[in-house]
Write a protein that binds this DNA or RNA. Structure first.
Length: 225
DNA sequence: AAAGTCTACAACCGCAAAGTT
DNA sequence: TAACTTTGCGGTTGTAGACTT
């Protein structure tokens, strides 16, 4: 038996939200919270599905949502984190208070993607020149950070150990204490080398410390293997 | 001024993970 | 433990407004 799509029920409205709907949703959540998105629209008197209400609240109506243009600092963080995390927009958004995953995703596709593609092209061209001058026949790998994290892949810890700057070695996973017994247990169960790939705080701090230097060294390391 | 094209972003969709019974 | 429900995520689409021809 399949799951019923949330908007399949008859009479549910789709498309842009009206100010009246926004007011009803905001008022309801301020009074009752949002413990059950599925039941919320009926209780609030909205002809919307719970999913739509949740999205509207999280991306637009929440009081702590920051509107307006991204600052240069925010752009920089997004670019760096995207290099580290890939398209994990919610993880990136977690590091930018007031910004939503949807907003960051849109901003990436409309502004930053082009810019980083241009940067990658320039980097590849620069490295080609460098490689050719050394007479190497190694293929240039365009992947910026080889241990880019995603839900399903593991990074190459040995490569990371070889690659990070000396001053950042102390931050590597096997030198680091787990946050607590629970996370430590999870780490050991799920990762033979004791690494929890979801520990974004760690990778974020490492990346901010090592930053471009880490990327540069890893690229060199790959080319030399 | 009209038509065509581009850009930005709100919103939808399907899927998978997490939670519940 | 299986079946089912709910939530959250990321990819994609629809469309309004800006811009160009």
């Amino acid at each position: 038996m399949g799951r019923t799509p949330c908007c399949e029920e008859m009479g549910l409205k789709k498309g842009p939200w009206t100010p009246e709907e926004d007011f009803i949703l905001t008022s309801y959540i301020q009074q009752h919270g949002h413990s059950n998105w599925r039941a919320l629209p009926k209780l609030a008197g909205l002809l919307r599905c719970g999913k739509s209400c949740r999205l509207r609240w999280l991306n637009y109506l929440r009081p702590d949502v920051k509107r307006g243009n991204f600052t240069e600092d925010e752009e920089d963080i997004i670019i760096k984190l995207h290099g580290l995390l890939g398209n994990r927009w919610s993880a990136i958004a977690a590091k930018l208070p007031g910004r939503t995953d949807n907003e960051i995703k849109n901003f990436w596709h409309t502004h930053l993607k082009k810019r980083t593609e241009q940067h990658s092209l320039a980097t590849a061209q620069r490295k080609n020149i460098c490689q050719n001058s050394r007479g190497s026949n190694h293929e240039i790998n365009s992947v910026k950070v080889p241990f880019t994290l995603s839900r399903n892949n593991l990074f190459d810890e040995q490569l990371l150990q070889r690659s990070v700057p000396r001053q950042s070695q102390s931050l590597l996973p096997n030198q680091r204490q787990p946050h607590d017994s629970t996370s430590g247990e999870t780490m050991n169960q799920s990762r033979p080398n004791g690494v929890n790939n979801d520990d974004m705080d760690f990778w974020y701090s490492l990346f901010l410390k090592a930053g471009d230097q880490l990327e540069c060294i890893i690229e060199t390391s790959r080319a030399s293997h």
